[in-house]
Design a binder for these strands. Sequence first.
DNA 1: AGAGAACAATACGCCTCCGAAACGATCTCC
DNA 2: GGAGATCGTTTCGGAGGCGTATTGTTCTCT
Lengths: 115, 115
Amino acid sequence: MVELRPSQALKLLHDLSFALVRDGETDLSARQITVLLTIYLEPPPHTVRGLAAKLGVTKPVITRALDTMGRLGLLSRRRDDADRRNVVVQRTVKGALYVERLGDLIVERAKELPR
Amino acid sequence: MVELRPSQALKLLHDLSFALVRDGETDLSARQITVLLTIYLEPPPHTVRGLAAKLGVTKPVITRALDTMGRLGLLSRRRDDADRRNVVVQRTVKGALYVERLGDLIVERAKELPR
DNA sequence: AGAGAACAATACGCCTCCGAAACGATCTCC
DNA sequence: GGAGATCGTTTCGGAGGCGTATTGTTCTCT
């Protein structure tokens, strides 16, 4: 439970998106960020099918998101040996660092919010 | 000053982007959200030139963002009568409601975060 | 073993966005 | 009044995302 007023919430969102745009190296969409955070916050394993169902989008959306973020090194894919139809999404060091940095960014911005 | 742990911050971002993706009606990019919140949170007047400089992007990016969000009714444009080269961005009722709803969404999600 | 289901990836046509450059309108200043 | 600066928009070629439909591979079940 975190107490937050609407004006603080909006300023926080503004500051965050502003920081992402300014230092804009990665340029991830809302969908991609959701996929990334789901993978790094929720317990594995994560499959394409499961992610698609969880987010309420089609499978190609997940495949493409994994393509893009895989290219950026934020995650990787591996065939499931138990059932070789499945693809298991794996975390990477680079992805973990990116997510960590993102969390710190929000914490910092939250600290500087007016009372 | 709002206290927030990194894990809480990440869960908040996850829940927010998840909600935006699930109810995905508008589908605004990070840049568009930044423009929208700048207009609604910072004191007017807002010009294309000023917004571009503030966000560190080129002017066409602002023009296109205003096109898209104008089409959605989230804001409107008006020629500046004092200097007719300038375009002044104006807030709309629909835009104000959208921003307000966004703030409430974050506050709600923040409330439900684990201690 | 063979038919059908399940899974991820790909093909296709469409749409939006991007940065750089060019453009038209308007103002400034001598 | 006229040259040059300033402002927002448009154009151009290119890149990437979207949803639907299809494909190739692998598993399941009798």
